[in-house]
Amino acid sequence: MKQVVVEVTNVVKQYQINQLAAAGIKNYVVGLLQGKNHTKTFNALDNVSFSARQGEAVGIIGKNGSGKSTLLSLIAGVEKPTSGLVEVKARVSPLLELGGGFHPELTGRENIVLNGVLMGIPKSKVNDRINEIIEYSELEEFIDEPIRIYSSGMLARLGFSIATQLDPELLIVDEVLAVGDQVFQKKCMSTMLNFKKNGVTILLVSHNVADIEKLCDRVIWIDNHKVRMAGDIKQVIRAYKNIDQ
């Protein structure tokens, strides 16, 4: 058996939304003086467990707002669980949202360096690979333009190219590929299939069931902040589709 790369154990994630603090210090102080409790607790994940071994591709499905993105944020180390344990034994290459990890005023080329370095890759290595990244993205024409002029498809291309051309260990892809064109989506799929063979672990959130069937070994269905079903792709997807309709 290969090494476990991602281990999520009994994870609970609650968001405390203090309506007063969000409205600023002035309202917060006034609210404290009135002695009311304005904190609302919202459960984003409720006792979620799952694991992924090296070289496995795990699909994550579920309705919008079910907690998928929160789970990925916890695995990427961006947020911390309220209780439970998240263990990740690999460098994470996250593609969590369109244009995430980029600065709009910088050019595509500058954003490659920024994004790569923030992922923890030495600057010298990013610079060595920059031409491969640009070539893979097929954005040569626009690479020295600020990315605020990029379309959503171009942002997805740039993000995917950086994440994949810098030796990912754990690749997390959250729906961002849906905006790319057919040709690029195919290219992404074949790159990810290749990675799987080479021992890269992949977590893929997608509403495109065909993509999940093509790439993933297992699938997890998150519904209403809990793991509703996990395991064999065909079974889980059949159940998911039945509920959906």
């Binding site: 944020s73 990427a76 180390g77 961006v78 994470v92 996250p94 969590l96 949202e97 244009g99 995430g100 990890g101 980029f102 600065h103 920024l114 994004n115 923030l118 992922m119 923890g120």
Partner: peptide, 11 residues
């Protein structure tokens, strides 16, 4: 101002 960096990467 760097929201998109903080929300995506764990530096």
């Amino acid at each position: 101002h760097n929201r998109s960096l903080v929300k995506k990467l764990a530096f």
